[in-house]
């Protein structure tokens, strides 16, 4: 369970996020949907404890992301936007490094990586150095790295960016599987169709604020539209730049 309660964050004069609140339940996929620069990444960065909010609070699994950051990180697997790998290390070593930093070691670590290799179908390149991997291969390794410690909360920033159709499809199936295992999945995207196809709950963000949120059906009903895209357009035009 991820609870976000009025967080705000500014960089110099730019208010990237202002008073954003929402909740992401366990066993559901929650999507942060919004145009580029809406504040999705900043919100996620606050949640995965890389940035500190200027105001408001956020809790993951009941723990505060600011005061209890280390505990939050233990229960969370994050895949930041464009997650970089270590090109001189093999896929296995990249994943194992994160596993060790999560406190895994020895046979337990090896077993866990074997499982995840199966799950994400990394077998054919698990022992190759990641230098020269395709975007799809890199994303899969980055995801494996984020999941190595079997986290309850999974935060993905634009996970399908740069993936081809087959890779996107495989990733969606995996995310659905994570949900079915009872995990709390929070992902961001600027692609309407993707969020519509995948998410149980949508949080539409624009200009650093939450414009609307709810299940796809709730949103359609509220705006009296059958097309989610129309809902999206109307929702984000409802929030303007405040003076």
């Amino acid at each position: 369970m991820i609870e976000v309660d009025g967080i705000s964050k500014r960089f110099g004069k730019v208010e990237a996020v202002r008073s954003v609140s929402f909740a992401a339940e366990d066993g559901r996929i929650t999507g942060l949907l919004g145009p580029n620069g809406a504040g999705k990444s900043t919100t996620l960065r606050v949640l995965y404890t890389v940035l500190k909010p200027d105001g408001g609070r956020a809790r993951i699994g009941g723990r505060d992301v600011v005061t209890d950051a280390l505990a939050v990180r233990r229960s969370m697997g994050a895949m930041p936007h464009g997650a970089g790998l270590y090109p001189q290390l093999t896929a296995w070593e990249n994943i194992a490094y994160y596993g060790r930093l999560h406190g895994l070691a020895g046979p337990a670590l090896a077993r866990r990586i074997d499982d995840i290799t199966q799950l994400l179908n990394l077998g054919e390149f698990i022992d190759r150095r990641t230098k020269g991997f395709s975007q799809g291969q890199r994303t899969r390794v980055a995801l494996a790295r984020a999941l190595v410690h079997d986290p309850q909360h999974v935060l993905l920033d634009e996970p399908t960016n740069g993936l081809d159709v087959m890779a996107t499809r495989a990733l969606r199936q995996l995310i659905l599987r994570l949900r079915d295992q009872g995990r709390c999945v929070l992902l961001s995207s600027h692609v309407m169709q993707e969020v519509a196809a995948l998410c149980d709950c949508i949080v539409i963000v624009a200009h650093g604020q939450v414009a609307a949120s709810g299940t796809p059906d709730e949103l359609r009903r509220r705006y009296a539209e059958t097309d989610l895209e129309e809902v999206f357009v109307r929702a984000i035009s409802g929030v303007g730049e405040r003076p």
Partner: peptide, 15 residues
């Protein structure tokens, strides 16, 4: 590390 984009995920670890 920062230029490769591997710093941000590293900072989400319990270290």
């Amino acid at each position: 590390e920062r230029e490769r984009g591997s710093l941000e995920p590293l900072l989400t670890l319990p270290v």
